[in-house]
Design a protein around this nucleic acid. Structure first.
Length: 573
RNA sequence: CGGGAUGUGGCGCAGCUUGGUUAGCGCGCAGCGUUCGGGACGCUGAGGCCCCGGGUUCGAAUCCCGGCAUCCCGACCA
């Protein structure tokens, strides 16, 4: 609604809407199911949807929030083409990198194009053609436009679609410091956008993918159906994706002085943690897992408790100068002395033995005996084996201590709704976006790029705001402000029509159910569609001078005097 | 890319194993009537290249071959 203007009234008898009583057969997750059932979207092809009037209204509301925050942050709205010459992608070198993700097409002259998966190339070329002086910078351009990616596996309705609405912004600065400022401004704008969109989110450090570049943060909507797991702390700001996450180091524990000597055990045909644990009637966390890896031709062992996994990324970061890789079957074949599945932390041929601090648990370990079909029990840290290096190389588990504040970490899944990158000069150099500085010298502009999955947000919101009866939209994103439901009878109908018009004149967007039909159907549809406030007008209430109000999200009902209905509802909206 | 499954009026499904002539059910849709505060009921009716192409057969939704489409799972942890 906008102050001082009259709202919009849509009558359900006229609305292009057919709600479904059954769940669509191809929808697995709640947001997909409900958006289809409630008549917001319809599938056209895998990962491609039509947006029906209800869906279109929600999409535009989110778009508007994004637009307002981008404008406030100083970005300027543009519209860039969806059909892009492939030549641009060849120039940036991303033709190959994006490869099969792109929808490709040709014109009648056989010039090759693609459908925009993103727009770095187009926007960089645009800026390169217009701006050439340090006086021009910084500049930040954005658009809200459809994007196309031929995903390996489109799924979950709007969550991984092949056609999706994205806000993409691109900043151009003189230097890294300027880029950092532009980046920070976008980061703050994103927090505003997602806060206004009313879902739970966290920003997490991320690896940049195909786009390339240095610093990047992802914004994740917390949701069980999310495709990415991430680690976060409820007590402080710490959040990271599972690959980048780390935990607080566990301090060293003195080894038990009186521990019995280690003992070799026959464990035939048990190269797996689970099998050994079962055989010895113990838990996997009493075993040590010794993962062989290669550091530039030398053998390394990564040591973690048996119930944990090695974080390959963290391991690699310990040897920044070298290439690090976990052993493959081929590597094992080349090292017949390494008894795969029976390696112990004291294996003689290892140059590096890196242990996670969780190996400092105050009990002896069961480990491989460096001999096929044998393990060892009672192996004591410091007595029977000594790592060459300690590092947090285990994948973080829920309950591990937060590296910042020490409180237990949580792992949840998230839907990536936004991503901010500092790109550096990769595109500006490739595509010739240079500027002249005060001294007359040429430099490539320093670029940042910032995406928000607008259509994906619709799904993220439904994931968080629904119940068994349907969607419950947050007030500012709902397709309408109020849902007026007329009960049977002429008096109800004429009174509902009047109230609907009054609410509309007062600036509310009103969905008015003027259909002839049974109340039960109207109630069910109202709950399914999810407009935040329902106003029920029936002859019984009217006889007492009241109308009924139901808050969709909570189910709370109250009665409002008819003559104060408009004021009360406007105030509530 | 590998594996699994599914394609039958607008939607959800049955029928297919064991081919047989009018292809069925529920929802929705249209008409009439009774109903009318949480997805009513009765009667009547419209609507189907049974995904596509080929084959077998007197005869194919059903069997065979080949496509296409859709959905799910997986994509190195000893």
């Amino acid at each position: 609604m906008s102050a001082g203007q009259s709202g919009n009234e849509v009558r359900m008898s006229q609305l292009f809407l057919r709600t479904l009583r059954d769940d669509p057969a191809d929808a697995e997750i709640d947001s997909h199911r409900l958006l289809v059932r409630a008549g917001f979207i319809r599938k056209v092809a895998s990962g491609i949807y039509s947006w029906l009037p209800l869906g279109s209204r929600v999409l535009r509301k989110i778009e508007q929030i994004v637009r307002e925050e981008m404008d406030r942050a100083g970005a300027q709205e543009t519209v860039l083409p969806i059909v892009q010459p492939l030549e641009l992608w060849e120039r940036s070198g991303r033709d190959g990198a994006y490869g099969p993700m792109m929808f490709r097409l040709q014109d009648r002259k056989e010039t090759r194009f693609c459908l925009a998966p993103t727009a770095e190339e187009v926007v960089t070329t645009l800026v390169a053609g217009e701006y050439s002086s340090y006086r021009d910078l910084p500049v930040n351009l954005y658009q809200i436009n459809w994007k196309y990616r031929d995903e390996l596996r489109p799924r979950f309705g709007l969550l991984r679609a092949r056609e999706f609405l994205m806000k993409d912004a691109y900043s151009f600065d003189k230097d890294l410091a300027g880029c950092q400022e532009s980046y920070d401004a976008m980061y703050r704008a994103y927090e505003q956008v997602f806060t206004r969109c009313g879902f739970t989110f966290r920003s997490v450090k991320a690896q940049s993918g195909e786009i390339g570049g240095d610093t990047s943060q992802e914004f994740m909507a917390v949701a069980a159906v999310g495709e990415d797991a991430f680690v976060w702390c409820e007590h402080c700001d710490y959040a990271a994706n599972t690959e980048a996450a780390t935990k607080q180091e566990i301090p060293s524990n003195p080894a038990p002085a009186d521990a019995p000597a280690k003992e070799k055990l026959h464990t035939p045909g048990m190269p797996g943690i689970e099998g050994v644990a079962e055989h010895l009637k113990t838990k996997p966390n009493r075993l040590l897992k010794c993962i062989a890896f290669d550091v530039d031709g030398e053998l390394g062992l990564a040591i973690v408790p048996g119930d944990r996994e090695v974080n390959e990324l963290a391991l690699g970061q310990l040897f920044p100068e070298w290439s690090v890789g976990l052993f493959t079957d081929a590597d094992f074949a080349a090292r017949p002395d390494l008894p795969k599945g029976y390696i112990g932390p004291d294996f003689a041929g290892a140059t590096h033995v890196v242990a996670d601090s969780s190996v400092r648990a105050p009990h002896p370990w069961i480990t491989g005996a460096n001999e096929v079909d044998h393990h060892v029990k009672g192996s004591v840290l410091g007595r029977d084996f000594t790592p060459t290096q300690w590092a947090e190389i285990a994948v973080v588990e829920p309950g591990d201590a937060c590296p910042v504040c020490g409180q237990p970490l949580r792992i949840d899944r998230g839907i990536e709704v936004g991503h901010v990158f500092q790109l550096g000069t990769k595109y500006t150099e490739a595509l010739g976006a240079h500027y002249t500085d005060e001294q007359g010298e040429q430099h490539p502009m320093v670029m940042g790029c910032y995406g928000i999955g607008v259509s994906r947000i619709v799904a993220a919101i439904v994931e968080e705001h629904h119940d068994e009866n349907g969607i419950a939209w947050p007030a500012h994103l709902a397709p309408f402000d109020v849902h007026v439901i007329a009960m049977p009878g002429e008096e109800s109908a004429s009174e509902a029509e009047k109230l609907s018009a009054e609410l509309c004149a007062a600036g509310l967007d009103v969905l008015y159910d003027d259909r002839e039909g049974r109340p039960g159907v109207k109630f069910a549809d109202a709950d399914l569609v999810g407009v935040p406030v329902q106003v029920i007008i029936g002859s019984k209430g009217l006889a007492r001078g009241i109308v009924e109000r139901k808050v969709r999200a909570t189910g709370e009902r109250d009665e409002i005097p008819r003559d104060r209905a408009v004021a009360t509802l406007v105030e509530g909206a």
